[in-house]
Simulated assay, not measured.
Amino acid sequence: MNSNTSDNHIILRKGIYDDLPEMLQLFTATIDEVCKKDYDLQQLEAWKSGSENRERWVKVIKEQYVLVAVTENKIAGFCTLDQGNYIDLLFVHKDFQHKGIATMLYHHIEKKALLNNEKELTADVSKTARPFFEKRGFHVVQEQTVHVKGIAMTNYKMVKNLIS
């Protein structure tokens, strides 16, 4: 199949328990490839280790609003909304970067928050994702150092006001 035609065939649907293995694979592969310009190897390894916390991921599926973008029966990306106003995870497969998938996912999630009458959206955002969030109207409230498996990493607490 011509790869150019696949861009328009992205289906957004609710994530389910059976999506977890593919979501985890996407999570680690994206960190490896897409985030390597912003974090060193130790940091990437520590970040990826989050995929081993099975309990956390099962909880994500059970308790968060999980949205997956599917193309050609593959998960191209996913985004999760926790407590109605916190974007917990937003990842797009390394092979599907710069095709508007993150934007599609984000818009849907923002709509969901607005339907829930949320006043703002918050997220803890990596250096890699910060420009994406800034383009969507988020601003940095605080630069943070988080420790994952003893490794210090920088991320940003970001917020977007949903009331104009």
Rank of each mutant, 00 (worst) to 15 (best):
K59T: 15
T128A: 04
N85V: 10
K127F: 08
V68L: 05
K62A: 15
K59A: 10
M158G: 04
Y39S: 06
N117R: 13
E33Q: 11
E55H: 12
V125M: 10
N85W: 13
V148I: 15
D7A: 12
F91S: 00
A129K: 09
V141K: 14
N155H: 10
H93A: 02
L89S: 12
E118D: 14
F138K: 03
R130E: 15
Y106R: 00
N2Y: 02
V140P: 06
S126E: 08
P131A: 02
R136C: 09
Y39D: 07
Q25L: 05
T80G: 06
V140K: 04
E110H: 11
A29K: 09
Q142I: 08
K36T: 11
E134T: 15
I87S: 02
A69N: 03
L105H: 02
A102I: 02
M23L: 15
K111T: 07
K99F: 05
V148H: 05
T28N: 07
D95I: 00
K160H: 09
N155A: 08
Q142G: 04
E72I: 01
N2M: 05
V125C: 09
L12A: 11
K111A: 13
Q42M: 13
D18F: 05
V58N: 10
E45Q: 12
Y39I: 09
D19C: 04
G50L: 11
F133D: 02
A123I: 12
N4S: 06
E110S: 07
L44Q: 09
E52C: 02
M158R: 06
E22C: 05
M23N: 01
V34C: 12
A102Y: 01
M104D: 03
L114N: 07
H98W: 04
K111D: 11
G137Q: 08
F132R: 00
V66A: 03
D19N: 10
E33Y: 09
I75A: 00
V66P: 04
V68W: 06
L121C: 06
E55M: 08
C79T: 11
E120Y: 15
L105E: 05
K111R: 11
E134V: 12
A129R: 06
H98P: 03
I11W: 07
F138E: 09
D82F: 14
N73F: 03
G150T: 06
V60K: 04
N155W: 07
F133T: 08
I31Q: 02
H108C: 12
V125P: 11
K112G: 05
K127D: 10
K127G: 04
W57E: 04
E72A: 12
D38Y: 10
E134W: 01
V34R: 01
A102D: 01
Q142N: 10
D124R: 14
S3V: 14
L26W: 02
Q42A: 14
H107D: 08
Q83F: 13
V92S: 00
V70R: 00
I109S: 07
Q25H: 04
